[in-house]
Design a protein around this nucleic acid. Sequence first.
DNA 1: CGTCTATTTGAATGTACTCAAAAGCGGTGG
DNA 2: CCACCGCTTTTGAGTACATTCAAATAGACG
Lengths: 202, 202
Amino acid sequence: MEGVEEELLRQNFLHTIGHSLTEEEYRYFRQNLFRRSFDKKSILAEVSRESRYVYFILSGSAYSYYVNKSGDKHVMQFAIEGYWISDQYSYFTGRPGIYTLETLEPTEVLVLNRESHDKICQTSHLFEHFFRILMQNAFVALQYRLAKTNSEDAEHRYLEFTRLYPHFINRIPQYLIASYLGIKPQSLSRIRKKVANKQTSV
Amino acid sequence: MEGVEEELLRQNFLHTIGHSLTEEEYRYFRQNLFRRSFDKKSILAEVSRESRYVYFILSGSAYSYYVNKSGDKHVMQFAIEGYWISDQYSYFTGRPGIYTLETLEPTEVLVLNRESHDKICQTSHLFEHFFRILMQNAFVALQYRLAKTNSEDAEHRYLEFTRLYPHFINRIPQYLIASYLGIKPQSLSRIRKKVANKQTSV
DNA sequence: CGTCTATTTGAATGTACTCAAAAGCGGTGG
DNA sequence: CCACCGCTTTTGAGTACATTCAAATAGACG
């Protein structure tokens, strides 16, 4: 059971750096993580509090969001099994957090804290490399998202979202997808209706 | 002359990883870069063509932009002396470019190509570390920008821009700043008028 | 100067928003 | 098992911010 889930972490290495870890490398890395379970709607990181952890999701799901001065939530990231999630701002800078992290379902995670992260990266060129590539990929994806946000209307952004993340569609509440897309739930509802009509009429 | 400008690169290391390079480290790194000059409005990378270079700006300025299906430009990044700029998508993935890179002024750069980049990172844990931290910082800044884009109106985004990048204001044409903010030049003009009135009336 | 590009201003329009309420869905307890 | 409650999604009507279209003004460069 544990083995099957943690296979996800090995796969994450394979997918990120293009090759598997040796047993020794994996053991070393795994030693620095600890496993935790969270109920649905657990808060993993809060605004104004330093967040010293990154989470690798083994099962369940979570998301991070930004709250502006008017008190509106704006989803930054979704994460399901096999994804890393954290308040990267607080984690990397050491300053008080600006995002909230919350589980959507009962969730099992592997937790890495900053001290261990730094130690692993200092000790091992391989893991420094791994985290560099992980960041590069995250950066490229985020840049693409911003490009779309600034250049496409809400309908196209929604269609792009369904294309990129089909497995998210029936797992994440619609009002959170709306927030991720930068629109209100009412607007997403109208867009979905419009899109559905287009498809049936073809 | 050359020395003074390249001091910027040493400072970039200091600023990024928190300490200076030794002479030997610097020489090794510098060997892998070559210097180039570009006229104003030179294209450093184009859409659909693979871009295998990152540019460190010694003097002058450049910007990258995304062109959507309607043919509208959307500025992704500005860069002046001391900044790195590239089509990160193409550079990191090896796929055809999705951004255009163009100089705004006559510009002197140090160029690093992907092969050298990979070699440097493989050879040296220090430089792998440097590029990891560089990516982290870029990621965090981009995430913050996206959070603002999705949660603030155009006026607040403009004020935030002037706060974060005051040195850009009188150096970059207003229509490009508008594009960076995700609005039309006409809208930015109206916003500036409104902001100016508020300030004088206080 | 004259030309080309950038910025400003005006008027009409549109996409997504707000406010409001109904309908749908899922879980819980009687 | 059904009734109820809370939460999510849908629908409707009016609104607002930024857009489009259009043109005038200002600025930069040869």
